[in-house]
Design a protein around this nucleic acid. Structure first.
Lengths: 191, 191
DNA sequence: ACATATTTGTGTCAATTGACACAAAAAAAA
DNA sequence: TTTTTTTTGTGTCAATTGACACAAATATGT
């Protein structure tokens, strides 16, 4: 849980005591490559923090194709937020693209944490605010970029993801076809 | 502030007393059509709740074009989140597309509210969680839709916006060109 | 190590899209 | 009301893209 500890530390000031309280609700786990984390009809009862590896979060379309909603990278909190907060079953799927080490926080523990003391509650609220503002910033930045720029941005900021994740999934994540992404890569390598 | 009062009421249980405390930090204001709410180099020090009218939130690109980041509709909280939470100056612009009635909550009041009592603090955290999960759900839903489906979805769920907002801005919001959106409208009206 | 399954690289072709240009209509300003 | 500005509707054309098809290369499982 080393990376999660770091994440909490740099998110704000927190006594060692409170930090330990937080971490005591986080259970370290492992998911081998190819294994399912969540799938259609599952209830979503946890938040996940990825310590290492990549997850593929996608929708199964009626025609059998998959639309990538997110490739989850290390050092991020992730869950199916609508389903988690509003206690719904999901229609989507999340599988491990590589072996994954993660920490799991169950809804019950998440809610309990908020009632331990106001310092922890404030800290958790501020993390939620940061996740929200990062999310929106990320989305805004993307809407200014072409497909090629999005790919270059990934290469720059998350090269490991480009190496590890199959091109078809990358393309779907960026919002284009496998062939178009391939054309971009060919062009870039020829220059 | 009638709509904001309704919004709070249906977001959770809150005594009349706490509701009044919340509303006492919200100042009702008016912005005439065409007026600027926020522009390049402004500091973002408030959250806004739109009671009526529409705002246009966009980026000014280097080549002079504008990329629409959001058309803000009534009954939503909105601000430039990254700039608000992280106290930055913005590079973007937000103007009124129609006369707008809104409520303003300043950062100072927002932070003070959280310290009044735990009920209010919990309530505010849960609103942040709802905004976050709605945002992500909205984004996921959109990534499954074609341009035409996005337009039909707007027609169904926000017809007033389609009526009031210029086609060029709608197109940019949906992520396409004015001409393509026009082709879609022509096709739909001929059927 | 071998057999099987998945992913990649590539070409062709049809369909979609964006860029440009401009007249008509509508809205805003004077 | 008249003038000016903004927005809309439309056509043409070139460029980009997605769909399909398949061989080569990798990765996976036994």
């Amino acid at each position: 849980m080393q990376k999660l500890r770091e994440f909490f530390k740099q998110s704000g000031e927190l006594s060692e005591e409170n930090l330990d309280l937080l971490l005591s609700s986080c259970a370290p786990k492992t998911l081998p490559k190819g294994q399912v984390l969540l799938q259609t009809n599952d209830w979503v009862n946890s938040i996940y923090f990825i310590e290492s590896g990549f997850l593929h979060y996608y929708t199964n379309m009626q025609d059998g194709t998959r639309v990538t909603l997110k490739v989850v990278s290390p050092n991020y909190f992730w869950t199916m937020l609508d389903e988690f907060f509003n206690q719904k079953q999901t229609l989507d799927t999340c599988v491990a693209l590589t072996d994954v080490h993660y920490c799991e926080i169950k809804r019950q523990d998440y809610n309990q944490l908020k009632s331990i003391n106001t310092t922890i509650a404030n800290f958790m609220h501020s993390i939620t605010e940061q996740i929200l503002s990062n999310k929106v910033k990320e989305e805004n930045d993307k809407s200014k970029m072409s497909v090629e720029e999005k790919y270059l941005d990934l290469l720059e900021h998350n090269p490991q993801m480009v190496q590890v994740v199959p091109v078809g999934i990358l393309a779907s994540y960026i919002g284009t076809s496998r062939e178009t992404l391939h054309r971009i890569r060919r062009k870039l390598s020829s220059v």
